[in-house]
Amino acid sequence: MTTRSGTHAIRSEQDVVLSRQAVRKLAIECGLRLVDQTKLVTAVSELARNTVIYGGGGDMDWELVEDGGRKGVRLVFRDEGPGIPDIKQAMTDGWTSGNGLGLGLTGAKRLVDQFDIQSAPGEGTRVTITKWN
C-alpha cells in the first residue's frame, strides 16, 4: 500500500546529491535505523549516478509503502538512455562499461531488501529498489 509518493528529476551531479538528501528524509520518516538509512542512501547514490552517466538523465519515483505492520521506501530509477544489452553481465561484480569500479549495480543490490532491473537496448533502464524498516 502506498501512503505517499512523488518524483525527483535526476539530470545532473547536483541532482544526485539532492536525491540522496531527499531519500535520507524519507528513510527517517519511515523509521529506518541509521545503518539501514546509510545503506539505502548509498544505493541511491550509485543508482542516481548511473542514471546521469549511463542513462543520460532520468527520474526517480519515490513511494512510502506499508505492508502489514512494516513500512518501507520504494524507489524507481528510470531513464530513456541506450539501455543495457546484457543485464547478467552488468550484474557481475567488477564489470563496468565505463571507467568505474563496477560496484554500482551489484553493490546497490546488496544494500537493499528488494531489487529489480529491467532494461533492453534502445529502451532505457528501470531499476526498482525497496528497503523495509
Partner: peptide, 14 residues
C-alpha cells in the same frame, strides 16, 4: 569514518 558508513562500505564491496 562513522560506523554505519563502514558497514555499508564493506557490504558495497569496497
Amino acid at each position: 569514518m562513522q560506523p554505519a558508513v563502514a558497514i555499508t562500505l564493506v557490504e558495497l564491496g569496497l
